[in-house]
């Protein structure tokens, strides 16, 4: 390679300038005015009360609930539990689907395939069949992931009615798409040295994949899957806005009733859960990926 004396930052400067220009255009396009950042109507009062409640979340109902209601903290814990349950169910389904789709769309299957001794059928499969399947599956994955989990929820609600499994599917479908894309990229981008060694000693395409590529990519895949679980918890919480019994449902209700301290109880519960998962996954990532 020849030495490059041109400053390497030149394209980045162009890109930065383009981004600033795009931001400026978007500012006018979205009709933003700095003046609109000032709360209007009773917005100031809401802001004051809501922020004031942040450091004193409710430990009990602000207004006496109907008789027979569980204590507030029990309600918060139950919402938290269901948030985790929907996230875990959705994520496990997504992991299954995403792994299958991710393996199927990784190009390493066929681009790292068997040698020249393969028959006509195998060669045809590798030259035509596998690539066209690859493109088709990539399209499916892109659409799965392009529809937001809340929109999947809306579609499933319209098609099937309110049902807990709809919430699981709403998480599982887009997350499977994301996992499939990232997994296949990781498999394709991981170092090919051990794969090449296996192929040289006569391993088949599948063997090369399972023993040469997969172990190399697995730590990254696991770390990414854990990170997505953290995202799934947030998605699961938000699904509550559409009637599922997760944190979002109770948060919305408490806020609409102006019970700001109760709102913060749910909000702090969500923050604690997400931060705990982030700390856990961060510690694992440092152990696994940076080894």
């Amino acid at each position: 390679m020849t030495a490059r004396f041109a400053p390497r930052r030149a394209p980045r400067a162009t890109l930065l300038a383009a981004l600033l220009l795009a931001g400026l255009l978007a500012w006018f396009g979205a009709g933003l005015h700095l003046g609109d950042l000032v709360p209007r109507g009773n917005g100031t009062a809401v802001l004051g009360e809501f922020c004031g409640a942040a450091l004193r979340p409710a430990l009990d109902y602000e207004v006496a609930p109907p008789p027979g209601s569980p204590p507030l903290l029990a309600k918060v814990l139950e919402a938290l539990r269901l948030t985790v349950v929907f996230a875990a169910a959705g994520m496990s389904l997504a992991l299954l689907l995403g792994t299958l789709l991710g393996f199927a769309t990784a190009t390493a299957w066929w681009s790292e395939g068997a040698g020249a001794r393969a028959g006509l059928g195998a060669r045809l499969l590798r030259r035509v069949g596998a690539p066209s399947l690859h493109v088709a599956l990539r399209g499916v994955i892109a659409v799965m992931r392009a529809v937001h989990e809340l929109l999947w929820a809306v579609l499933l609600l319209a098609a099937m009615g309110l049902n807990s499994f709809s919430a699981v599917c709403a998480i599982a479908i887009p997350y499977a798409g994301t996992l499939a894309k990232v997994f296949s990229d990781m498999l394709d981008e991981c170092p090919r040295t051990s794969a090449a060694a296996l192929r040289a000693s006569g391993a088949s395409g599948v063997q090369v994949f399972l023993f040469g590529l997969l172990p190399r990519a697995l730590p990254d895949m696991a770390a990414y899957a854990f990170y997505r679980f953290e995202c799934a918890v947030r998605s699961s919480a938000i699904l509550g806005f559409f009637g599922f019994p997760t944190l979002g449902y109770f948060l919305q209700l408490a806020f609409a009733n102006k019970h700001y301290r109760e709102t913060w109880s749910y909000l702090w519960a969500l923050i604690a859960l997400v931060v705990a998962l982030e700390v856990w996954s961060g510690a694992l990532r440092r152990k696994v990926v940076m080894r």
């Binding site: 609109d36 950042l37 709360p39 209007r40 917005g43 809401v46 802001l47 809501f50 809340l150 947030r234 998605s235 919480a237 938000i238 806005f241 979002g248 948060l251 919305q252 806020f255 909000l267 969500l270 923050i271 997400v274 931060v275 982030e278």
Partner: peptide
């Protein structure tokens, strides 16, 4: 840690 959707929901009441 707070999802965008919840942030937007809260900000809507203020702005």
């Amino acid at each position: 840690a707070v999802p965008e959707y919840v942030l937007a929901f809260l900000l809507l009441a203020v702005l």
